[in-house]
């Protein structure tokens, strides 16, 4: 191992130790100085996770969260210079973390919080205005073949838990009261979308989720709508399109040339 690897390993190791060969310019104890640096590294990473996952932390308390974060950091050192996306695997870690098993929805809440950060940093894209979409109605027969491109920030999260309601309850001033009205065992689908500079989270119906996921996969408009209707009798296409258009989520809508002939 190189000196650098030894040094980096000692920074994140579970037990404090000082890499051999360190000296201080003024003759002070290098072990003590290294411990300060080590603590800085770990605490700053824990703080970064706490910034990204505020609701996850509130759900289990600061003490639990920070202890869990420390173990996560030891197993998952940063792989990128960008701290903003650090901890994108925390949800997976939580799923395999026995002490958190009783809080079955914790991993999905963490997933939602990471999607918020990703949406915040996603690329800009100019949404289509209703006036730009309207001409597509002129070629009704070709409409089912249209490909609808969605905003880069848009993400759909399927959860077996009330992930949106749990998250939303923590945005209120009286969290305890808001939580009392939430049944965490109700499955919910979250739509994450940045509108302007604000990341918005909304709960969408199962059919809408299937439709949007289909579009994300590049499936044609008509086929995506059929899949949604097959999955959910109550699928409301007009309402779903309205939601997407209002949120500026539709960035391209193209009818393939071959279909128009």
């Amino acid at each position: 191992m190189s000196d650098q690897q030894v040094f980096a390993g000692a920074l994140l190791a579970a037990e404090p130790s000082c890499p051999p060969g360190l000296t201080a310019w003024n003759g002070s104890d290098p072990g003590r100085r290294f411990a300060i640096y080590r603590n800085n590294v770990v605490v700053s990473l824990i703080d970064a996770l706490a910034d990204t996952y505020p609701v996850t932390q509130e759900l289990v308390g600061e003490e639990f969260f920070r202890a869990m974060a420390r173990l996560f950091i030891q197993a998952n050192p940063p792989r990128s210079r960008m701290l903003a996306f650090y901890g994108d695997r925390l949800a997976d870690f939580i799923e395999g973390f026995p002490p958190a098993a009783a809080v079955s929805y914790l991993a999905d809440v963490a997933r939602l919080e990471m999607l918020r950060v990703s949406a915040y940093h996603a690329a800009d894209a100019v949404p289509l205005t209703p006036a730009e979409i309207a001409p597509l109605l002129e070629d009704e027969a070709a409409l089912p073949t249209a490909r609808i491109g969605l905003h880069p920030s848009l993400k759909v999260l399927f959860s077996r838990h009330a992930v949106v309601s749990l998250w939303a309850a923590h945005q209120t001033t009286d969290v305890t009261r808001a939580l009392a009205a939430v049944d965490s065992d109700v499955a919910e689908v979250a739509l994450v979308l940045r509108v302007g500079l604000d990341v918005e989270i909304s709960r969408i119906a199962a059919g809408a989720a299937v439709f949007i996921t289909g579009l994300e996969q590049g499936i044609a408009f008509g086929r995506a709508a059929e899949q949604a209707l097959a999955a959910d009798d109550a699928f409301d296409l007009a309402a779903t399109l309205g939601l997407l258009i209002r949120g500026g989520a539709i960035t391209t809508m193209i009818i393939p040339r071959s279909a128009t002939s």
Binding site: F64, S104, V182
Partner: peptide, 12 residues
């Protein structure tokens, strides 16, 4: 724990 987990309704 000091978090809100124990205030969150869970049927199971």
């Amino acid at each position: 724990p000091t978090g809100s987990c124990e205030k969150t309704v869970s049927k199971t």
